[in-house]
Design a protein around this nucleic acid. Structure first.
Length: 487
DNA sequence: ATGTGC
């Protein structure tokens, strides 16, 4: 067994901080020892596993956050059945590491999904050569810049279409739009969008969305408040033009309509301000619902127990579904602007959907629920989309349904340096030191390029390799970036 | 993640 150089020192340091960690064949097993346990937690500590490429840096803070998540319990009923993390995991600032997956029974943990509800990936391929694309690049970019950054697009909705969106996600929203077309989407091909629901995770609809649009989101004037619908968002979110560089699993790629040399469109975004609003509200409500007689858990991860507060659990899941439905439609609209501009500039170009999948969501799965925070579902045979960093390749994979890692794959390469660190240290560095050479990044904010530069991320290849080796996914195709829009 | 932040 080969170990990272400073492994033993790291393990001793973690032990002093209340964490027992062991390492075997690229898997870390983490367990809280008594010093970090809450006094009412009489049960044995729950172990969590992390898969990491050999020699990869491990952050103590992320391990600690994962161990805390694995040991969330509700004194009135509810426990974690299993917890693990993907190779791209890194510390999160709300106390949950990005790349954590947790299976719970009898409770849900709103903080485990957080604010970025239904952040996810969407991939289209187009019948357009990269040469054709580059010949009209400037015109295409100018039009899309207007859509994504300056709001030249129209996403207005009536209260009826907005309500259908929040309650039913893509299919219900399409039905409402058919009756009363509004906004840019009114120019869309509804039949095509409807037919693409079967290439969208859960059909593009979370069951249990609220039966009305929340008052805070749809005021009495009947127009939906712009929660950022049809915008990319910050951080690692992007819209990217790519080319399918290599097809590895030809049979699967063929079934999914992906061929070598095709142009590809990859979207990484979520539910924007709606998720922020709902996630923040339920972080507070979960805290308020904690039994008054007990002190707060040090991790500040408050579960909602089915036994203690069944109505709160179902209200939370409804609220999460509401934001998730919005997230599905946000990605769909980002793709629609792309397709509309593609047709405008290049004529009759088909750009069918390959797949759309959330990597930040709670699903009824396993013994109760599985919450993935920055981890892509990787059920058997399911398409998995893993973006690289800016300038690095992205991957289309197929899930293998690996139960040990809760049927989940990474959602990227993983951050190596925080945005703050990059904004402080990156300004003095050259583009080549930041890995920014040959990257065609369209953004209005120079600091985004630096904060999100390839140097801020870990290398994607070892992250993919270790997941293939662990039988979490198989590689279907590799896409190389051509041009990236960052907000 | 968020028109943010040490």
């Amino acid at each position: 067994m080969q170990q990272p150089k400073n492994l033993n020192r790291l393990l001793r340091a973690l032990s002093r901080q209340g964490l027992d960690v062991s390492y075997d064949n690229k898997v870390y097993s983490i367990c809280l020892n008594s010093s970090l346990k809450e006094n009412w937690q009489d049960a044995d500590a729950q172990t969590a596993e992390v898969l990491l490429p050999e020699g990869f840096p491990v952050e103590a803070k992320a391990l600690k956050q994962l161990a805390s998540l694995a040991n969330v319990r509700h004194p009135q009923g509810g426990c974690v059945c299993r917890a693990c993390a993907t190779p791209d995991f890194h510390p999160g600032d709300s106390g949950v590491a990005i790349g954590s997956i947790v299976e719970t029974a009898g409770m849900v943990i709103p903080a485990a999904v957080g604010s970025d509800i239904n952040c996810g990936m969407r991939l289209h391929v187009g019948d357009l050569s990269i040469e054709q694309f580059l010949s009209q690049r400037d015109r295409f970019v100018e039009l899309l810049k207007g859509d994504y950054f300056f709001g030249t697009r129209d996403v207005s909705m009536t209260a009826t279409t907005a309500g259908a969106m929040f309650q039913h996600g893509i299919p219900g929203w399409l039905d409402a739009l058919r009756d009363k077309p509004t906004g840019s989407a009114a120019n869309s091909d509804f039949e095509q969008l409807a037919s693409e629901c079967d290439r969208t995770f859960l059909g593009g609809s979370m069951n249990g969305g609220v039966k009305w649009a929340p008052e805070e989101l749809v005021p009495n004037d009947g127009l939906v408040r712009d929660g950022g619908l049809g915008t990319i968002g910050g951080g690692n979110h992007f819209v990217e033009i790519q080319v399918v560089e290599e097809v590895i699993d030809r049979a699967t790629a063929y079934t999914w309509g992906v061929r070598s040399g095709q142009i590809a469109f990859m979207i990484h975004s979520g539910s924007r301000n709606v998720g922020k609003y709902i996630g923040g509200m339920w972080r507070d409500r979960a805290c308020e619902a904690w039994p008054k007689t007990l002190k707060h858990p040090e991790s500040r991860l408050f579960p909602l127990s089915v036994a203690a507060n069944p109505e709160l659990v179902s209200s939370y899941l409804q609220a999460e579904a509401t934001a998730a439905n919005y997230g599905f439609i946000n990605r769909l609209l980002l793709a629609e602007f792309l397709r509309l501009r593609l047709r405008q500039v290049f004529g009759d170009v088909e750009a069918p959907l390959v797949y759309d999948v959330p990597h930040n969501i709670t699903l009824a799965e396993g013994a109760g629920w599985v919450t993935r925070k920055g981890a892509c579902p990787a059920h058997l045979g399911q398409p998995v989309i893993v973006p690289g960093s800016m300038g690095a390749p992205s991957y289309l994979l197929v899930g293998k349904g690996n139960d040990r890692f809760l049927r989940s794959a990474s959602h990227g390469a993983g951050r190596a340096r925080s945005r703050f660190d990059m904004s402080r240290e990156g300004v003095d560095k050259t583009d080549s030191a930041l890995g920014l050479t040959g990257v065609d990044c369209i953004t209005l904010r120079e600091e985004r390029r630096i904060e999100e530069a390839p140097a801020a991320y870990k290398p994607i290849q070892p992250v993919i390799d270790v997941q293939v080796e662990a039988q979490i996914v198989g590689v279907v195709a590799k896409m190389k970036p051509v041009l990236t829009f960052k907000a």
